[in-house]
Amino acid sequence: MSSALDQAAIDRFNARYAACLDAGEFDAWPDFFLPDAMYKIVARENYDAGLPLCILALEGHGMLRDRVYGIKNTLYHAPYYQRHVIGTALLEHHTDGSATAEANYAVFRTRPGGISEVFNVGRYIDRFKATPEGPKLAERICVFDSEMILNSLIYPL
């Protein structure tokens, strides 16, 4: 088992991931992923039924950066704060040195001057690889239970 992907390393990774998004530092978000990584946000309804539709399905750094550009420059929206609460990851290590993990998350949304709402609840289904810079995501699938999105989802989960 690679200590680069041990429990503490993955939980620390998720804490940093949450801190990055909650601070609105979207430019740094693609760096949590390998260059050809897959990032998906998918309703549990589709995931359980084996249907491929996602609300976002981004392949690789290029698309992740396109999303960041969209958030900052093209998507008109009422701005909001995000607050991620991510549970301890359930880890499994593989002989090829990678690790898969699942961690529950809850994301709260607060519009400046408004009240806080439970915005999205689900679990991350992840594939990690060790790199010299620490763990990186080869894949993160956010499978959300809250199938009704509260109007629109602008920022990554």
């Binding site: 589709n46 249907l51 491929p52 199938e147 009704m148 999105i149 109007n151």
Partner: peptide, 11 residues
Amino acid sequence: TLLGVNRQRIP
């Protein structure tokens, strides 16, 4: 063919 469903509540 069905690809999937997405839902949103718009106030």
